[in-house]
Design a binder for these strands. Structure first.
Lengths: 223, 223
DNA sequence: CGTTAGGTTGAAGAAGTTCAAAGAAAGTGG
DNA sequence: CCACTTTCTTTGAACTTCTTCAACCTAACG
């Protein structure tokens, strides 16, 4: 595979908006990608920066967060290798509304809006494929938004655990990607509430906390 | 303007994913649109139906709702002329997950997925324009989802009032499109809570309830 | 003018937050 | 590897917010 930037394949092929494309097209996108390195605790972008590229995490770990008027941090997400952010930046003329910083030394693949634009005018089929993916995500996000407005702490944690679980030998487990206080923040509840919900679910027999980051799911549903 | 289906212009030109297109393209889309009539209380679609078209309300009023396991109705939205639903259906192969019924005699413009597909392959520029609009909506929806998870009843109502307000002669007013019990349901709170929040905002001087459906906004912000 | 659905109000109770304190886990430097 | 420090997690208790239930009020409509 003759890509200018090897290792990038690992990026492009993992991003949902790209991985449904024909390999032929994926290679063209790989060729556009640029790799950048960030040291631990280095800022990757700040709210207000121009957002002109898609970021795909190649290695390392990234924290995305916002800061509200009272100065309180709100965790938007923790990104691990294969995760990405800014897929909408490829098509918008807006600025970042969040902050992102490297939690560890991190390698990121970048795809610039201008490069993407050029590619789209050259290969219109890609646009239609991406449109399908965006429609899917939009649909999901709208359903999610509706649900969030009416769900309680237990439902939210349950949904999170299920959505992030893997099944092996009929055993369903979830490996938590962040500390409990961050998970609480992410799920929109206090750490204390999260702790109590975990305890309640365990006492009910719905889950087993094998270790602080490893949760075994027995029978769990939400709403 | 030689469109097969006059009155359709009123539809297409109002839908955000279309109204940024060049008029030339808008006319092509109008030509695709088909008009249907529904009587009061008639179902327009049911959950599980194939969703193969975009619905744009031309006249009348439509209720979109879901039904949870306990049989309880959840109001998703009330659609008035110019509103639309199913923009994602144009690009997805999924079925409806909601119900829609006509609250009054209603005229709807339909645009079928298959017709849209044909149009997109013929005019790829349209796809890129729609992609931009979808990116914008996706971005907004994700922000919204995050916010919903952490906001309280007062913030939600405030945001709703502001988002749905019109300003005239420096006077900001919101005309409610639905009954309070429906609004409560829509905002994910009980009618009693909604009533109390309205009262509290009025006593604080933030709003004036000119009539049951007309709210004047003095100074209101959320979060 | 009476019926019915929608809206408001009070009071009790459930769900979640906050604060404070104690216990557990994870660095850090000697 | 240990002792020390720091940060995270859990727990209890008081407090806030929202829901539920029941009663009452109001407006719309045959």
């Amino acid at each position: 595979m003759n890509c200018q930037n090897c290792g990038a394949d690992l990026c492009v092929s993992r991003v949902p908006i790209f991985n449904h494309l024909d390999v032929e097209y994926q290679i063209k996108i790989m060729d556009l990608s640029v790799t950048k390195h960030y040291k631990k605790n280095e800022m990757i972008f700040n709210a207000g920066d121009v957002s002109d590229s898609l970021f795909i995490i190649n290695s390392g770990k990234v924290k995305v967060f916002s800061i509200d008027e009272s100065g309180k941090e709100h965790l938007i997400s923790i990104l691990n290798p294969g995760d990405y952010i800014g897929e909408t930046s490829l098509f918008l003329n807006e600025s970042q509304h969040h902050f992102a910083s490297a939690l560890e030394d991190t390698k990121i693949c970048l795809i610039y809006k201008s490069d993407m634009r050029r590619l789209l005018s050259e290969y219109p089929t890609i646009a239609i494929k991406i449109l399908e993916e965006f429609a899917k995500r939009l649909d999901k996000s709208q359903t999610q938004a509706k649900w969030l407005g009416t769900s309680n702490a237990t439902s939210r944690l349950s949904k999170y655990l299920i959505d992030n679980s893997t099944t092996k030998d009929g055993l369903k487990v979830t490996k938590l990607k962040m500390a409990r206080k961050d998970l609480a923040n992410y799920l929109g509840m206090s750490p204390e509430t999260l702790s109590r919900v975990f305890k309640a679910l365990e006492e009910k027999g719905s889950i087993n906390q094998k270790s602080s980051r490893l949760i075994e799911i027995n029978n769990l549903d939400y709403d």
